[in-house]
């Protein structure tokens, strides 16, 4: 049903991405590619893989392909106090997912049981309208298959009985070296991810568009300068000067500082 399901269970599986920790290593993106290449929506076709077959404006632009997860880098603010933020981006499994409602075939759908948004590759006609309807650039068209593809939230991992229980998390989450990615039920206010979101002020991307994304981003924590720690004196000068002026800050002060070895 293309219409959005009224989730009877309230389960909303999704990701929480910690921008305070993400170092921009692209591990999540490549591991996602690797898993999903052979996964539910695979293959994730690549073109011009070793160059030489595609010409764009008189130039070979290099390899490109279908990826479900991509890592951007932004700079926020100006000058030396600006901050660099790495920003992984994949499907947010929105509650009000227009990518679903615009779909003429019903190939794009949101699962009732867990809120995962998927594309049925057998019925998609490749009209690309859903990619226009997604503000987040999460939809990736596969020219070779003529159908739309996207992050599946690793549906073939998270319930996969052939995997050990601990491995039943999305590929991007299990591989993230910095543990900047979390997976869980955001519909359950007591789940670990929901707690994290409320503690850290997790937020929605482009809230103004009203898609109500399930995935949340944890903001970079405010930068702390050493001056921000009030316990720490701004310099050690006081200590240096409080010494006997005779001794000054010279070597003599250690004459009596003899410790036993």
């Amino acid at each position: 049903m293309t219409a959005l399901p009224a989730s009877p269970t309230g389960r909303r599986l999704g990701l929480v991405i910690d921008l305070d920790i993400c170092v921009g290593c692209h591990a999540c993106a490549v591991n996602c590619k690797e898993w999903n290449f052979g996964g539910h929506s695979g293959p994730l076709t690549d073109w011009n893989s070793f160059s030489g077959t595609e010409d764009r404006g008189g130039e070979d632009a290099g390899a490109w392909g279908v990826w479900f997860n991509r890592v951007h880098t932004f700079e926020v603010g100006d000058g030396p106090d600006s901050r660099t933020v790495h920003f992984p981006r994949s499907c947010l499994h929105c509650e009000d997912a227009a990518c679903v409602t615009v779909c003429p075939t019903g190939a794009s759908y949101k699962r009732e049981e867990d809120g995962i948004v998927l594309v049925n590759a057998d019925t998609c006609i490749g009209c690309k309208l859903c990619s226009w309807a997604c503000p987040y650039g999460a939809r990736e068209y596969d020219h070779a298959d003529g159908v739309m593809k996207k992050c599946t939230l690793c549906i073939d991992r998270i319930y996969n009985e052939n995997l050990d229980e601990v491995d039943r998390v999305p590929a991007c989450v299990s591989t993230c070296p910095a543990s900047a990615r979390h997976f869980g039920d955001l519909g359950d206010p007591d789940s670990a991810v929901s707690v994290l979101v409320s503690e850290r002020g997790g937020y929605d991307l482009m809230p103004e568009l009203g898609y109500r994304p399930t995935n949340k981003y944890l903001p970079p924590r405010p930068r702390r300068d050493c001056a921000d720690n009030e316990e720490v004196p701004v310099s050690l000068a006081d200590l240096a000067d409080r010494d006997d002026p005779e001794i000054g800050s010279g070597l003599l002060r250690w004459v009596d500082a003899v410790l036993s070895r």
Partner: peptide, 13 residues
């Protein structure tokens, strides 16, 4: 008719 997809959530790896 709306076709519903049956997802194999436990494919062999």
């Amino acid at each position: 008719a709306t076709v519903r997809e049956t997802v194999n959530t436990s494919p062999s790896v």
